[in-house]
Amino acid sequence: MNISPEERDAVYKTIFSRRDVRREFKPNPIPHDVLDRVLLAAHHAPSVGFMQPWDFILVSKRESKTQIKQGFLQAHAEAAELFEGERKEQYKSFKLEGIEEAPLGICVTCDRSRTGSIVLGRTAKPEMDLFSSVCAVQNLWLAARAENLGVGWVSIVHDKVIRDTLNIPESIDIIAYLCVGYVEEFHDTPDLERAGWLPRRDASSAIHYESWPESSKE
């Protein structure tokens, strides 16, 4: 199956316009058919040994969101103490989640024992199942953007909070908690780039040929 130039361009447009959304969520519910398409795209991510280790927990109850938001506030306060001076104040000024604003939360997990202890492709690099689940997150994110849905990854929260709130067994790894919903707008640049936290690294500086660059080995 060949991809037409128009289809190719749509893929690149989706990639380059993807954003980590924190503040622009609308309360509008996500239609079932749209959510089904997004989750099906996530489920079609590549996985080591075709083990498909992911699961998706859909979170819409206010009580659950409130518990997770409280966990975020605790972890956010802890993180703020790691910065100093102006950097600390800038960090504290950022809006870094939309847990209660987004109509839907999605927790992505990884069951590392899904197909047994020996997995094709995981023998030399055992964390490949975790990487596979992250691929599912990226598929979900890009599919959501193609549906004009915003997604925000909440990483500033301890796993125990999510585990206790959503009754996730200790044997299951938590990969991501995502806030999902329609948004007021998608910005042209990421929030942190726009705020001057860090600039976008030039792609050419990340590309090397044949070996790691000598100048970077010190």
Rank of each mutant, 00 (worst) to 15 (best):
N2V: 07
N2H: 09
I3F: 07
S4D: 07
E6T: 13
E6I: 11
Y12N: 01
K13H: 12
K13V: 00
F16L: 14
S17T: 15
R18W: 04
D20F: 00
D20P: 00
V21M: 14
R22Y: 03
R23L: 00
R23S: 14
E24W: 11
E24R: 11
E24G: 14
F25T: 01
I30T: 05
V34E: 06
V34N: 02
V34S: 04
L35H: 02
R37E: 08
V38P: 00
L39Y: 03
A42Y: 02
H43M: 14
H43Y: 07
H43W: 04
A45R: 02
P46H: 09
S47R: 06
V48K: 05
F50I: 12
M51L: 05
P53D: 08
W54Y: 09
D55G: 09
F56R: 04
F56G: 03
I57G: 01
L58Y: 04
L58E: 08
V59L: 01
V59G: 00
V59F: 03
S60A: 12
K61Q: 14
K61L: 08
R62Y: 08
E63R: 13
K65S: 03
T66D: 10
T66A: 12
Q67E: 11
G71I: 04
A75G: 02
H76N: 13
E78T: 08
A80H: 01
F83S: 08
F83W: 10
E84F: 09
E84T: 13
K88C: 07
Q90C: 06
Q90A: 12
Y91M: 10
K92N: 10
S93T: 10
L96I: 04
E97I: 06
E100R: 02
E101W: 00
P103R: 02
G105D: 03
G105T: 01
G105M: 04
V108K: 01
V108F: 03
C110H: 01
R114Y: 07
R114E: 06
T115D: 05
T115K: 15
G116W: 08
I118H: 09
A124W: 11
P126N: 09
M128E: 12
D129R: 00
D129I: 00
F131K: 09
F131S: 07
F131E: 04
S132Q: 06
A136D: 02
A136W: 02
A136M: 06
Q138F: 09
N139I: 02
W141M: 08
W141A: 05
A143I: 06
G150V: 05
G150P: 02
G152L: 03
G152H: 04
G152I: 02
S155D: 14
I156C: 10
H158R: 15
H158C: 05
I162D: 03
R163A: 08
T165Q: 06
N167K: 14
N167H: 14
I168A: 06
P169F: 08
P169C: 11
P169S: 11
D173F: 03
I174V: 13
I175W: 01
L178C: 04
G181Y: 02
E184S: 13
E185A: 13
F186V: 09
H187C: 07
D188K: 14
D191A: 12
R194Y: 13
W197E: 15
L198F: 15
L198T: 13
P199T: 12
D202A: 15
D202K: 15
A203I: 15
S204E: 15
S205C: 08
S205G: 05
A206N: 11
A206L: 15
I207H: 07
H208C: 10
H208I: 07
W212I: 13
P213W: 10
E214H: 08
E214S: 12
S215W: 06
